[in-house]
């Protein structure tokens, strides 16, 4: 809302000042851990362990990043994640559009039934084990398919895409196209898709982020190291503290136990940055689309 024309009264001035202070504190408490992790990833291991890093890097070094890029599993994890993300998102977006368009059409007989079929799955599920048994019985265990096909249709994304189609593609357009003998497939390809790029951008982002950050399905479905996405490798290193020291010795001299421990600690900070930076770089550019996506979703949940 625009309050610009209205002059603040005394009480409102206090309100405004307090508001800015609260927001700044909020901002700092979210920002500080991010800055600390970033600074630590460039600091010398000793400085981190002894607590001398608190805001800016101390004893600048790139050893942590060198160690990250020499770690064999991290490289292959990165490549696998990239593949799961691209292939998975392509399947997701195609299926989502195919589901959303017909259900956006008011003349589709039984569309409420179909909608219920989709939405009900968000309220009730068979549970983890029947799902696991299904994936196993389909022969997908330890294959890339387990990462791509289960959960390929995101119901929330179907709902927001459908809402977008309903609100931004005028009925008159369909009528005009139908008078000219345009089939539904042609209408989707030539009219709906070109008009729907904003929502396609939004769901592409939602799905892509989901794939990049996905760890649980890999955790239960994959056994071979060469299929591991980045998140599983991250789990080994960050959570299980499972770091192959032989790989690190090629980067820097790690003779003493203390040095090893320091470097493995530094490696974790660098790894956190490397795993998160791709999304953080893309996200400011696409933030407005994300916001739009959530807003469309909130129109009709």
């Amino acid at each position: 809302m625009d309050n610009r024309s209205i002059r603040d009264s005394g009480g409102d001035r206090w309100f405004t000042a307090l508001n800015y202070i609260v927001l700044t504190l909020f901002l700092l408490s979210v920002l500080y851990p991010l800055i600390y992790v970033l600074s630590a990833s460039f600091s010398s291991p000793d400085a981190i362990v002894s607590g001398r890093v608190w805001l800016w890097p101390v004893g600048f070094t790139l050893d942590g990043y060198k160690a990250v890029f020499h770690h064999k599993l991290i490289g292959s994890g990165f490549r696998n994640s990239l593949f799961y993300m691209t292939a998975g998102t392509t399947i997701n977006v195609a299926l989502t559009i195919l589901a959303a368009y017909p259900m956006a059409r008011k003349d589709l007989y039984g569309r409420h039934l179909f909608m219920f079929l989709f939405v009900f799955t968000t309220m009730f599920s068979g549970g983890l084990i029947p799902f696991y048994i299904l994936v196993r019985d389909l022969g997908m265990l330890n294959t890339v398919w387990a990462m791509l096909l289960p959960g390929a249709v995101g119901v929330w994304n179907v709902v927001i895409t459908r809402t977008y189609f309903q609100t931004s593609i005028p009925d008159e357009m369909l009528e005009a196209a139908q008078l000219d003998g345009c089939s539904d497939f042609t209408f989707v390809r030539k009219i709906v898709l070109p008009l729907s790029m904003p929502i396609i951008a939004v769901i592409t982002l939602f799905y892509a982020v989901g794939h990049w950050n996905q760890y649980f399905s890999a955790f239960i479905f994959l056994k071979s190291q060469n299929l591991y996405p980045l998140q599983i490798v991250l789990r080994e290193i960050l959570i299980q503290n499972n770091i192959n020291m032989d790989m690190l010795s090629t980067v820097v001299d790690v003779q003493s136990a203390a040095k090893r421990e320091g470097l493995s600690n530094l490696l974790k900070y660098s790894l956190i940055v490397v795993a998160t930076v791709p999304l953080m770089i893309v996200y400011p550019f696409v933030q407005k689309h994300f916001v739009k996506g959530v807003m469309i979703g909130s129109l009709k949940g």
């Binding site: 299926l95 068979g126 549970g127 029947p130 299904l134 249709v153 179907v158």
Partner: peptide, 16 residues
């Protein structure tokens, strides 16, 4: 898409 939802969401409900 309906096939996907039936297979991956409703078949597990049957399996439950």
């Amino acid at each position: 898409p309906v096939l996907f939802v039936i297979v991956f969401n409703y078949v597990p409900m049957y399996g439950a």
